[in-house]
């Protein structure tokens, strides 16, 4: 199939020639009670790259994202089948033998709406360290600063770390949440439509941040915005009705989709 006529700009993020696999999904099924939300997903997530999950509402992209830090375990009557193997130690993080808390200590998450705690900026960032039992003020100070720098928020808040995190603007709050997710040195950071509650300027700053983070951490991002997927990601997966329809380097998926459903979605025929 030739290039699709689409308003989506061609991807700007390059693909590593020799990518390392950070996580390998094999035969993943997920159930809410009797409803099967994910159907036999096979997918490799590459290290230190941004992978975008796109698709229409209800396609299972958020469900897949939330499997990675076992968020579904908070709800009763949910069930995983199959594997999400995390490397280098090759553990199946959706196995019932693995404690979800262990998984969440390695894989952190940024949510759709900024959700800072009604605590100080400092405590928001330090919380992930505090729950691990880090008490030394010097260590906390250093890691809070590093995380806030990593989230491009340090210069804006360094003089008011004791002010409530909820007093920041929406975009700043979301960067605070990113700092909170970075403070624990995660291997993967999950983003669930992180800009859908933000204005265009705040959105641009979050996107820049995601791109700059990719050098040091593996990123999975769910977005309903195709332009965003094209701008920030190296790899894109298109999901539909709980299935992974097509997955590949973002440039290829957007310019030469192999599946009819992918090109239909990209050109706005549905979704």
């Amino acid at each position: 199939m030739s290039a699709v006529a689409t308003s989506v700009p061609i991807a700007t993020q390059s693909v590593n020639a020799d990518p390392k696999v950070k996580s390998r999904i094999r035969g993943l099924n997920f159930f809410y009670g009797h409803l099967q939300a994910l159907k036999n997903i096979d997918m490799d997530i590459y290290e230190h790259a941004v992978t975008a999950l796109i698709g229409p509402s209800g396609c299972g992209k958020s469900t897949l994202l939330r499997c990675f830090n076992r968020m579904h375990d908070l709800k009763p009557d949910t069930r995983y089948e199959g594997e999400i193997r995390l490397y280098p130690d090759d553990v199946n993080i959706v196995s019932s033998d693995i404690d979800p808390i262990e998984v969440r200590m390695r894989i952190s998450m940024v949510f759709q709406k900024p959700n800072p705690f009604p605590k100080s900026i400092y405590e928001n960032v330090a919380y992930g360290l505090r729950v691990r039992g880090v008490k030394a003020r010097s260590e906390l100070d250093g890691r809070v600063e590093a995380a806030l720098r990593g989230a491009a928020l340090w210069d804006e808040v360094k003089d008011r770390l004791e002010e409530p995190g909820t007093a920041l603007s929406g975009g700043q709050q979301q960067r605070l949440c990113i700092a909170r997710a970075l403070a624990t040195d995660p291997e993967i950071v999950l983003f669930d439509e992180p800009t859908s509650a933000l204005d265009p300027i705040a959105t641009a700053s979050i996107e820049d941040l995601i791109i700059s983070m990719a050098g040091s951490v593996t990123i999975l991002i769910v977005t309903h915005n195709m332009q965003q997927a094209a701008r920030v990601s190296s790899y894109t997966a298109f999901m539909y009705l709980g299935e992974l329809v097509e997955y590949g380097p973002t440039t290829e998926l957007f310019t030469r989709p192999r599946q009819q459903r992918t090109s239909d979605y990209l050109t706005g025929r549905f979704g």
Binding site: M71, L74, I101, R104, M105, F111, Y127, V131, R132
Partner: peptide, 9 residues
Amino acid sequence: EAAYAVGAT
């Protein structure tokens, strides 16, 4: 969710 996501019990 925010608290659980950073590994809180």
